[in-house]
Design a binder for these strands. Structure first.
Lengths: 374, 374
DNA sequence: CTGAAAGCGCTTACAG
DNA sequence: CTGAAAGCGCTTACAG
């Protein structure tokens, strides 16, 4: 305590101060902290005791990094505001995997606050770019970023090893993701097999402009997020093969992955005569929003409306979810990404399976229908 | 792209290289990146262009930190394994607040992987200590650590500003927490008012040894986690005032905040003749475990068993929770902690309110009972 | 608006 | 096992 007080009053002790006080060289103090085998145990003890007495907590991290070129940390860049990321169960599953791998690698994790929506009032340029520039890390993981994100460009400019997870897929950048198209295809095939002909799609964001609503063909074609684009392709391929015109299936885009948005977008559609009997949702969150909308419209799930989600994150407790969904290995993506960063030389592209899990939110359509509702 | 390749092959460009190539001084390049007002716009543009051409992404963060003494990051130390932390809704709410504040402060967030249970196989000493030593940060937030955690000691040794959230409460260390005792008291009073006389308490961990089970009076007295100790004190004070002998109320300690543990610990108790009619749970997770245990025992909630949780995190979606609980402002704690770090000089102790929220998991006891079950 | 100089605190071969 | 020396890359008054 006394030492700490001295600390804050006087100048902070350095390696040199400890060396002087202990009567040894610079090197010896450094070794006492970083290379115990380079000096005798009693001497080491003496040095460490002297250090403690001077309030010296160990080598200055910045000086050490400058000298060694290593930081002992990796940077994690998110597509969303950091606060939002922590509320998305998908991201949390991924973070768990990353965190686990970090522990194994004895690496700290630097979370980089970025913002998808460019802040016009921001003099420092696009959000996250400065943060990436300043990040004292040995590499980056890009998690679910848009192809045109300024953060992607600034990470690439750093010239450090990096891995993209989910998106973007860029030539020359190691990648970890899942079979989005296949997973989506199986979800649609499942509903088609139950006789459904009238669909609506709840889509994750296709662009970074925060837009909600029905996505036009142009918007879909210009999507800068490849994951929703791939899932959409999978849904549509299956629908077309099943004899349903994909162009007639509305795509409701939700700028944020939350139940409320899905609920609000879908509800009006459920009041129409030609209402869909089946919902393809690109996340479990969106799917739960659809379930809520159904209830609000006086419809039952799966009696009046079948819903298939994506992610398999809805049931976290002892209770398992009732949602039919596409399972993906969230934590595994995090583990793999860090492994690719830590041990380069392995495969540069890992595409993990996405498996359909049938539960209680999907069922055979009640009344036979044609695609045009007749 | 070509530049990037050169980058990885040749030595990485420095400020000096850029200065040489642009025909300006060291200083000017530095200013171009950090102080735009110190040079003309055209010159700045020229410098930046040259930098880009050389694959120079900006000043080396370590060198900059060494020079300025600032890192632009704060360290967050958790009591649990990092992977577990990301699965605890309480921690996530807190992280959201921290993340939000970080964005406002333009600060990155370094997550420090620590482990509560000392790993015997760990040659580097207690987990987290080295990570704290190596952390290139301007300050620390300690989140819910045990009083005797080695991480607390190593953070204190760093001599950097730090704030403890929830626990530990240490003299001289700024603190953010809630009125744990008061919140717990109100939870118990609520159940007493409903006529309950037979209780069981589901407790969060009291020590760092990973022990589950009935906590002896000795263990409670020796608790190194002050939050559960305070809540226990609150429960017991209310029980005693309500004429229930606190010593007769079993305290079931759960080493991890999860439903499964609570379920497994409580279930045997629910099969006894003297089974409790009311559960005081120190978290919503534990409370949900109690609800699951009730179901498994063929009891209804709140018909046969009343359950009161803590945290108010159980209902995350559109659906609100049915749990009677004690609400605490998770995100606000995070925001306040960062604010205290960023703007020292304000109050050093912030104790936020913890308010009882009555919902459907608690009800009047069905048959009148005395404390001894007669 | 520009440039020369000093020094932030450390690690690492290397010689003894 | 110990110590003297060089240099990692930058920022910041300061003088012009």
């Amino acid at each position: 305590m006394t030492d700490e007080n001295q600390d804050t009053l006087s100048k902070r002790a350095t390696l040199r101060d400890v060396a002087k006080a202990a009567g040894v060289s610079h090197t010896t103090v450094s070794n006492a902290f970083a290379r115990p085998d380079q000096l005798s145990a009693p001497l080491r003890e003496r040095v460490l005791t002297t250090a403690r007495a001077l309030g010296y907590a160990g080598p200055n991290p910045a000086a050490r990094s400058l000298r060694t070129g290593r930081h002992g940390a990796i940077g994690l860049a998110f597509s969303e505001d950091l606060p939002y990321a922590f509320s998305d169960p998908t991201a949390i599953g991924f973070l768990q995997g990353v965190a686990e791998a970090c522990r194994g690698l004895r690496t700290n994790l630097l979370l980089i606050a970025t913002r998808t929506l460019a802040a016009a009032d921001d003099p420092a340029g696009p959000d996250g770019v400065q943060a990436v520039r300043d990040a004292a890390v040995d590499g980056f993981v890009l998690y679910s970023l848009a192809r045109d994100s300024p953060v992607v460009a600034s990470v690439s400019a750093r010239g450090l090893p990096h891995v993209a997870v989910d998106q973007p897929r860029l030539p020359g950048v190691p990648y970890v993701g899942i079979d989005d198209e296949g997973g989506a295809r199986r979800a649609a095939e499942h509903l088609l097999a139950f006789g459904h002909r009238r669909f609506a799609i709840l889509s994750l964001k296709l662009g970074s402009d925060g837009r909600d609503g029905v996505a036009s063909p142009g918007r879909v074609a210009a999507a800068t997020y490849s994951v929703p684009a791939s899932r959409l392709a999978g849904y549509r391929a299956a629908l077309a093969r099943g004899g349903v015109d994909p162009a007639a299936v509305p795509v409701l885009e939700c700028a944020l992955n939350d139940e409320r948005r899905a609920h609000d977008q879908l509800l009006p559609l459920l009041g129409t005569k030609q209402r869909p009997t089946a919902i393809l949702a690109m996340s479990d969150r969106l799917a739960l929003g659809a379930v809520a909308a159904a209830r609000a419209a006086g419809l039952t799930v799966p009696g009046d409306l079948s819903v298939v989600g994506f992610d398999d994150v809805a049931g976290d407790g002892l209770e398992s979810s009732f949602l039919t969904t596409v399972r993906q290995p969230h934590a595994e993506k995090g583990r793999l990404a860090l492994q690719m960063l830590a041990a380069p030389g392995g495969p540069q592209q890992r595409v993990l399976p996405a498996e359909l899990v049938v539960r209680a939110s999907s069922a055979r359509v009640t009344a036979p229908q044609s695609a045009d509702g007749t």
